[in-house]
């Protein structure tokens, strides 16, 4: 365990080299928040009936969605693909630890880094410029737990895309398809309750809502009591099954991997 945490700490320190990058990440997030706030204000101004939640809740929803977006691991499949191309992947797989866990603890550094250097400035900015509600007590605890489960789901999805590199080497296309599906089906842009009833029913069975919709709904207090337990349960089931699937495919694909160098 210590070795994994050391890896997290090492990657965390590496991240600090790219300061300018952080600045632009914060700028992009603030920009997204501004755009979403303006859009939702216009949408609510054009007819608020049938939109389920209040404008204030919807604006909070957008801010939290933009923050989650910068925190979830969404592009480390490029790193895996890169290492398959160069052959360095062999070195990772030979080491006496789990490749899945190693990748997880490495991306965890990104989460920590994002929390410290991206979320705090954005949260400060949004409290000053556009105040949002903040949950307290048990609700806050369940939100954090739900957010972490969502992180697990997002990690597994990206890892699965990365594993495809063992077979196809290049995975840019698969990654883009994953991002598109996540963008539409997770509630990242438009909450699931605004989808047509039939579509919403299907989306509520899929893992994608666990990344955005469930944690944010807990945050704004839309999911409470039994509905919240059901949401958390669903997240737990999906996170566990996707991680298990990743581990199984890792073993299978490992046998099929053909690469050069090392």
């Amino acid at each position: 365990m210590n070795a994994y945490l050391a890896l997290t700490w090492m990657s965390f320190k590496n991240r600090k080299v790219y300061k300018l990058n952080v600045f632009f990440r914060v700028c992009s997030s603030v920009l997204l928040i501004v755009v979403l706030r303006e859009i939702w204000t216009a949408v609510y101004g054009s007819g608020a009936s049938g939109l389920t939640v209040t404008l204030a809740d919807m604006l909070t929803y957008s801010v939290i969605a933009s923050i989650i977006r910068t925190l979830i691991p969404s592009d480390f499949h490029y790193d895996i693909s890169q290492r398959v191309q160069t052959g360095d992947i062999v070195l990772d797989l030979q080491k006496p630890w789990s490749y899945l866990a190693m990748t997880f603890f490495r991306t965890l550094a990104d989460l920590l880094f994002g929390l410290v250097y991206v979320v705090i400035p954005i949260a400060a900015a949004s409290l000053l410029l556009f105040p949002i509600g903040v949950p307290t007590g048990a609700q806050a605890v369940w939100f954090v737990l739900s957010g972490l489960l969502g992180y697990g789901i997002a990690f597994s999805l990206t890892f699965l895309v990365g594993l495809l590199a063992f077979l196809f080497t290049e995975v840019g296309g698969f990654g883009m398809i994953k991002s598109t599906i996540l963008e539409i089906c997770s509630g990242a842009m438009i909450p699931l309750w605004l989808f047509p009833a039939g579509a919403a029913k299907v989306l509520e069975l899929l893992p994608f809502q666990g990344v955005f919709s469930i944690p944010i709904s807990i945050y704004i207090g839309k999911l409470q009591g039994a509905a919240m337990w059901h949401g958390l349960e669903l997240q737990l089931i999906w996170a566990a099954s996707l991680l298990a699937l990743a581990q199984v495919l890792l073993v299978v694909f490992n046998r099929l991997l053909v690469t050069t160098g090392g």
Partner: peptide, 12 residues
């Protein structure tokens, strides 16, 4: 996404 949204609010 715009299609989804305009199902609820036809004119934005």
């Amino acid at each position: 996404l715009t299609w989804v949204l305009t199902q609820k609010v036809p004119i934005i």
